[in-house]
Simulated scan of single mutants.
Amino acid sequence: MRLNDLRPQAGATRRKRRLCRGISAGQGATGGKGMRGQKSRSGGGTRPGFEGGQMPLYRRLPKLKHFTIVNPKHFTIINVGDLNELEAGTEVSLESLLEAGILTASNGPLKILGDGDLSVELAVKAAAATKSAREKIEAAGGSLELI
């Protein structure tokens, strides 16, 4: 036996379907695609996951409950009421709060929340602040600068 003697086993290979080559080919005229419709046209049908313009499943699912945020923002948070311990005219930042012992750990940039009342004039530098926190700081005569 030599390489040129090798042949596939009988029945192992089938001839290629010859589409649109007349009725005797078995797939003439429409080429096995039926009569009309998007899937019968040239250029194929739709992309995988397309649902006729309806919001597809892979885009609907993350809007449901119990899906975690992929890249959540982590902030070191403090309430406006906790800033009353500081002296008037103090510049408040994440570093100054850690040095003063008001905050014990840094979990990311500083965010000021609006719980409590503020009676001290402070110059606050933070990454984020709520609307109520901004109003309370400015009402006390202080300023808020977003970094």
Rank of each mutant, 00 (worst) to 15 (best):
I137Y: 02
A10K: 06
I147W: 01
K111T: 00
T13D: 03
L110V: 03
A129F: 02
K111A: 07
N4K: 10
T46V: 05
G11N: 07
R60L: 13
I77P: 05
D115P: 06
K136R: 04
R15A: 13
I23T: 14
Q38Y: 07
L86H: 03
N4Q: 12
A25Q: 08
K111G: 00
I78N: 02
R60F: 10
K33F: 13
N4L: 05
S42L: 13
S106M: 05
A10L: 07
L118T: 11
A127S: 15
D115K: 15
E121W: 05
D82Q: 13
E91G: 11
L19P: 04
I112C: 09
A25C: 09
A139G: 11
S119N: 10
T30F: 13
G22S: 07
L94W: 01
H66F: 08
A88K: 15
D117G: 08
A12N: 07
V92P: 04
T130P: 02
F75T: 06
A127W: 11
G22R: 13
R14A: 14
T30D: 05
R15M: 10
I77K: 12
N84F: 05
K33R: 15
K63Q: 09
A25N: 08
G101K: 10
S143T: 15
S24C: 04
T68S: 06
A123C: 08
G22E: 06
S119A: 04
R41N: 02
R21P: 00
L6K: 12
N84C: 11
E145F: 12
